[in-house]
Amino acid sequence: MEKAEASSINRYFYAVVLYFFLWIILTYPFSIQEWEAGAAIAFTASLLSYKELSISGLKNIKRIGILLFWYLPVFIRELIKANLHVAGLVLNPKMPIKPGFVKIKTNLKSPVARVWLANSITLTPGTLSVDIEGQYIYIHWITVGSTDVEHASEEIAGSFEKILEVMFR
């Protein structure tokens, strides 16, 4: 278990904000009665689960901002590229695949950042993260480019690692 960065009250209020926002989204046609019920439920539910929800509390709201305005455009571009790649592969009668398992090295410190990196890698062209072990991520690569750890890291994780490093500072 990792040591918490923020105080309990901070984490508690982060949980309240997140749950209340989620409640508003899910009961979309806005009405004041729904909001009152949502506030009551958010305060109660956060009491039960704020310890499991986050370790850095309200700082996460800044991270969500970076996520929406910087990470998401890059991510969507990569997702579309990945899909065109898959489409080309599947529709090609010969299926030119050359699969392999490679491992890459990441410099990210926080475990949450590593999970995000692994998730992003799964949705980028031709790669699927299979396992994490400390600094190394094992990846199934459908058309292997290079088997060298450094080289593969740059090619696969380069664009996301910079963003995530800023995000989880």
Partner: peptide
């Protein structure tokens, strides 16, 4: 395309790749 990839590709990991990306 995702379903076609699941159907055509030769082994589990390649299928998983096509399945995940295209269906997502």
């Amino acid at each position: 395309l995702g379903a076609l990839g699941i159907f055509r590709l030769p082994d589990l990991f390649n299928r998983l790749q096509a399945g995940t990306k295209a269906t997502t």
